[in-house]
């Protein structure tokens, strides 16, 4: 199981949002850190096939990002996205399950499991317009997991979650990382500090750090700040 990103760039007129990023990601939680505007979301969108790179290629186990098969192994939680306010939480999941190609009985079972997983089982039949921000975010997480993805891309996933929910979310990502590639983008270091197997740092469209992470290296917060401020020479380890 491998996600290969090969010299991927995205340029808007004179602005380079993502600059020749090459990566190979394996099973586990991959934490992508970077300030706002670093190019994290642009990279994530390209990984999900909703934004075409200016150059470079993306593939998962040999499947190109443009293929339907690629999208069937993908789970995606965007940073900022919408819902259908008149749908219930259950309707929304069943709709997304239909788009992910799940058969109806399988979709119903999976939706029920995920509603339970994100503690929305009691609100399953309530309209989304009545949900709080945190409930909507949890519903978003549930939809990303519908197709039991092998590649899970989550962009700033903890926004709107309370501290208890954040902890639960981190544990969930850690569990999922055992069987799939999880790419978790955030600017909050604590979101990945204890769960990331690999840490990636982006700055001004470039990947300035990529390596396995363990806590023996010290505080990730300090490590990150040193890289962002330029105190440490950029280093990427293309495994």
């Amino acid at each position: 199981m491998e996600l290969v990103i090969d010299r991927v760039s995205k340029q808007y007129k004179n602005h380079i949002a993502v600059d020749r990023i090459s990566l190979k990601l394996q099973k586990g939680v991959n934490g992508l850190l970077g300030e706002n505007g670093a190019g994290k979301t642009t990279l994530m969108r390209m990984l999900c096939g909703i934004l075409k790179p200016t150059s470079g290629s993306i593939s998962f186990d040999g499947m190109d990002v443009g293929e339907e098969n690629y999208r069937s192994v993908l789970g995606y939680l965007p940073q900022d996205f919408g819902y259908y306010p008149e749908f219930t939480g259950q309707d929304f999941l069943l709709y997304m399950a239909a788009l992910k190609g799940l058969a109806k009985p399988q979709a119903k079972q999976r939706a029920a499991e995920l509603l339970q997983l994100v503690s929305l089982q009691d609100a399953a039949k309530k309209k989304i317009k009545t949900y709080s921000g945190g409930m909507k975010q949890r519903l978003g997480i549930a939809q990303a997991l519908l197709g039991q993805p092998k590649l899970l891309v989550v962009d700033e996933p903890t926004a709107g979650l309370d501290p208890k929910e954040r902890v639960r979310f981190r544990n969930l990502m850690e569990t999922l990382g055992k069987d799939s590639i999880v790419l978790l983008s955030t600017h909050i270091v604590s979101d990945i500090e204890h769960i990331a197997d690999t840490v990636l740092i982006m700055k001004a469209g470039k990947l300035i750090y990529q390596d396995k992470w363990n806590e023996s290296k010290g505080s990730l917060e300090d490590f990150y700040l040193q890289h962002i401020s330029g105190e440490v020479k950029n280093e990427t380890n293309h495994e």
Partner: peptide, 19 residues
Amino acid sequence: HIRKTDQLILASPLGKTWL
């Protein structure tokens, strides 16, 4: 596009085709 649900739709297997 206005609701930003397009991201979820277009990243799904059938969102770009059958939908």
